[in-house]
């Protein structure tokens, strides 16, 4: 049934968010540490576990793939609710700090990619 897939997805997200929050409290941070990332790992584990494979007959999987396909529309809605006005009208300091942070981070991607590839070749 489709709802099994949706339920599994929802359960993974809730467990992940709870664990992320606990992790945040554990290290004394006022933020959720990797809750969504933990939820993703849980979902990957659950959908690969042989005992749960029986659950993932086609209609059940549809309950997950539907939400995966809704990702782009949700992101478009998210873009439409950003506080663009505040970002654009807050003056040069915020603009320069934001733009410079993005530029430096973009520039680091090829460097780290190469580093990752090299260590992988050695091992």
């Amino acid at each position: 049934m489709v709802i099994y897939g949706v339920g599994l997805l929802a359960a993974c997200m809730l467990v992940g968010v709870i664990l992320g929050d606990l992790l945040g409290q554990l290290i004394g941070v006022q933020a959720n540490v990797g809750g969504v990332g933990i939820a993703m790992l849980l979902l990957i584990w659950a959908t690969n576990a042989s005992r749960l494979k029986l659950l993932l007959v086609p209609p059940t999987a549809t309950g997950i793939t539907f939400w995966s396909a809704m990702y782009i529309p949700i992101v478009v809605a998210m873009a439409a609710k950003q506080n663009v006005l505040a970002a654009v009208s807050s003056g040069w300091l915020a603009l320069i700090a934001g733009v410079a942070a993005v530029a430096v981070s973009f520039a680091m991607i090829p460097l780290l990619s190469r580093l990752g590839r090299r260590t992988h070749d050695q091992s």
């Binding site: 992940g16 968010v17 793939t65 949700i74 992101v75 998210m78």
Partner: peptide
């Protein structure tokens, strides 16, 4: 476009 649906859809992409 809120955080709840956004995170739900992000988790779903891990499938």
């Amino acid at each position: 476009g809120g955080a709840m649906f956004r995170d739900f859809a992000i988790v779903a992409t891990a499938f």
